[in-house]
Measured scan of single mutants.
Amino acid sequence: HMTFVALYDYVASGETDLSFKKGERLQIVNNTEGDWWLAHSLTTGRTGYIPSNYVAPSD
């Protein structure tokens, strides 16, 4: 899985979304859904959809 880092805080707007904090590391499970990607937080262990423009590839 690709690892990304959150650029901003995001508060989930629905049950399927994943809240995260700036700097949180996320594994992308599925990024074929356009602007919303299914991600797994390496910080909280939770999985949900995130806005793709809130994250950047982590080196």
Score class of each variant (00 low, 15 high):
T43C: 13
S58N: 09
A6H: 00
L7P: 03
A6P: 01
V55H: 03
S19W: 03
T32D: 13
A12L: 03
T44M: 03
H40R: 15
S52W: 08
H1L: 12
I50G: 00
W37Q: 03
R25K: 13
T44D: 04
P51K: 05
A6C: 08
D17F: 13
S13G: 09
K21M: 10
D17R: 10
Q27W: 14
Y54A: 14
R25P: 07
T32K: 11
K21R: 13
N30R: 07
L18M: 15
T47S: 11
R25H: 12
F20L: 08
H1T: 11
H40F: 14
S58Y: 14
N31R: 14
D35W: 10
A12M: 04
L18C: 04
D35C: 10
V29E: 06
R25E: 10
S58F: 15
L42I: 09
W36Q: 06
N30L: 10
D59P: 13
G23Q: 02
F4N: 02
E24M: 01
K22C: 06
T32S: 13
A12T: 04
A56Q: 12
T44R: 03
M2G: 11
I50T: 01
A39Y: 01
L18H: 02
A6K: 00
L7N: 04
N53P: 06
T3A: 08
N30P: 05
F4K: 03
Y10E: 00
V5Y: 08
D17Y: 13
T16V: 11
Y54L: 13
A39Q: 00
F4E: 01
G34Q: 12
W37H: 03
I50Q: 00
Y8N: 06
E15N: 11
L42T: 07
V29I: 15
L38F: 11
D35L: 11
S41C: 04
N31D: 13
V5R: 04
Y49D: 02
G34M: 11
G34A: 13
T44Y: 02
P57G: 07
G48W: 01
W37N: 01
G34E: 11
Y49I: 07
D9K: 01
K22A: 12
V11H: 11
S58W: 14
T47H: 07
N30T: 08
G45Y: 05
R46T: 07
G48C: 01
T47E: 07
P51S: 03
K22N: 03
S41Y: 01
R46N: 11
Y54S: 12
S58P: 10
Y8W: 12
G48R: 02
E15D: 14
D17K: 11
P57L: 12
Y49V: 06
Y49P: 01
D17I: 07
A6N: 01
T43N: 09
T3H: 14
T47K: 08
L18F: 08
S19I: 05
D9S: 06
T47F: 09
H40P: 00
S19R: 04
N31H: 12
D35A: 11
S52I: 06
T43D: 15
I28F: 03
M2N: 12
R25Q: 11
L42R: 04
N53W: 15
R46G: 09
D17A: 07
F4I: 05
G14E: 09
Y8R: 09
L7I: 11
S58V: 15
I28L: 07
E24R: 00
D35P: 11
K22R: 10
G34R: 12
M2D: 11
D35T: 11
M2K: 12
I28V: 10
S52V: 07
L18Q: 03
L42V: 08
S19Q: 05
T16H: 15
T44Q: 06
T16K: 13
A6M: 06
E24L: 00
D17T: 07
Q27M: 15
T3I: 15
H1W: 11
A56P: 04
H1Y: 13
K21P: 01
L7Y: 03
H1G: 14
Y54E: 01
E15C: 11
T44I: 02
D35K: 10
F20K: 00
S58I: 15
Q27A: 11
S13R: 14
G14M: 09
A39G: 05
P57S: 09
A12G: 11
A56L: 09
Y54I: 06
T32F: 10
G34W: 09
V55G: 04
G45F: 06
A12W: 02
G48Y: 02
Y49H: 06
A39E: 00
S19Y: 03
G48I: 01
T16D: 14
T47P: 01
V55P: 02
V55L: 08
A6V: 10
L38A: 03
H40D: 03
N53R: 12
S58Q: 13
V29G: 05
S52Q: 07
L42D: 05
S58A: 14
E15A: 15
V55T: 04
Q27F: 15
N53H: 13
F4A: 07
Y8K: 08
L26Q: 00
V5E: 07
Y10W: 07
V5P: 02
S19C: 05
T44H: 03
T43F: 07
A39S: 03
E33F: 13
W36H: 05
